[in-house]
Amino acid sequence: MQGVVKVNSALNMRSGPGSNYGVIGTLRNNDKVEIIKEVDGAYEIRFNGKVGYASKSYITIVN
């Protein structure tokens, strides 16, 4: 499943599905991501070869 990031500035990509996990990357508006699955209000995603988590509130599914 594919998604597009929709933010005003940037969205943190984290090592786990919550803000208490470390930041492993930054997503920008209109970045395209692969959605692997939904976990606790976040999506597990793949972006630029990395797998991490981002809030589903800022990712629009575009299948």
Rank of each mutant, 00 (worst) to 15 (best):
Ile24Thr: 06
Lys50Ser: 07
Gly25His: 09
Lys32Arg: 14
Val7Gly: 10
Ser19Ile: 13
Val23Leu: 06
Gly22Trp: 09
Lys37Gln: 11
Glu38Ile: 09
Lys50Arg: 09
Lys56Leu: 05
Ser55His: 10
Val7Ala: 12
Lys6Cys: 14
Ile45Cys: 02
Pro17Lys: 04
Leu27Gln: 01
Gly18Val: 02
Ser19Lys: 14
Val4Met: 09
Ile59Thr: 00
Ile24Leu: 07
Val62Asp: 09
Asn63His: 13
Glu34Asp: 11
Gly16Glu: 05
Ile59Met: 01
Ile45Val: 09
Asn8Val: 12
Asn12Asp: 14
Ser57Gln: 15
Met13Tyr: 05
Glu38His: 03
Asn29Lys: 07
Asn12Thr: 11
Pro17Thr: 06
Leu11Lys: 11
Met1Asn: 08
Gly41Cys: 10
Lys50Phe: 08
Asn12Tyr: 13
Glu38Ala: 08
Ser57Ala: 14
Ile35Asn: 00
Leu27Asp: 01
Ser9Thr: 13
Ala10Ser: 14
Ser9Phe: 13
Arg46Ser: 10
Val33Ser: 01
Val33His: 00
Met13Val: 15
Tyr58Asn: 12
Leu11His: 05
Asn20Phe: 09
Ala10Arg: 14
Glu38Pro: 03
Ile36Lys: 02
Gly22Gln: 15
Tyr21Gly: 10
Lys56Tyr: 03
Arg28Cys: 14
Ile59Leu: 03
Ile35Trp: 01
Phe47Lys: 03
Asp31Leu: 04
Val4Glu: 05
Asn63Pro: 13
Tyr53Arg: 02
Ser9Pro: 06
Val51Thr: 12
Val39Ser: 05
Asn63Tyr: 10
Gly18Tyr: 04
Gln2Ala: 11
Met1Pro: 07
Gly3Met: 02
Ser19Phe: 12
Gly18Met: 04
Ile45Tyr: 00
Ile45His: 00
Val5His: 01
Thr26Val: 15
Asn63Asp: 13
Pro17His: 05
Asn12Arg: 12
Ser55Glu: 15
Lys56Cys: 07
Gly52Tyr: 03
Val51Leu: 11
Pro17Val: 08
Tyr43Trp: 08
Gly16Trp: 03
Ile36Trp: 03
Ser9Ile: 13
Lys56Phe: 03
Pro17Ala: 07
Arg14Ser: 06
Gly25Ile: 10
Lys32Cys: 14
Val62Arg: 05
Ile45Lys: 00
Thr60Tyr: 13
Ile59Tyr: 00
Asn20Thr: 08
Ile35Ala: 01
Asp31Gln: 07
Arg46Cys: 13
Ile36Tyr: 05
Gly16Thr: 06
Gly22Asn: 14
Val33Trp: 01
Ala10Tyr: 15
Ile36Met: 10
Asp31His: 03
Lys32Leu: 15
Leu27Thr: 01
Val51His: 10
Val39Cys: 10
Gln2Asp: 08
Glu38Asn: 03
Gly3Asp: 01
Ala54Glu: 01
Asn8Phe: 07
Gln2Met: 15
Ile61Asn: 04
Val33Cys: 04
Asn20His: 14
Ala10Ile: 15
Asp40Phe: 10
Val7Tyr: 06
Ala54Trp: 01
Ser9Lys: 14
Ile36Glu: 02
Gly41Leu: 07
Ile59Val: 07
Glu44Thr: 02
Tyr58Trp: 09
Arg28Met: 12
Ser19Cys: 15
Asp31Glu: 07
Gly18Asp: 10
Lys50Trp: 05
Arg14Gly: 03
Thr60Gln: 14
Lys37Ile: 05
Ile24Ala: 03
Met13His: 02
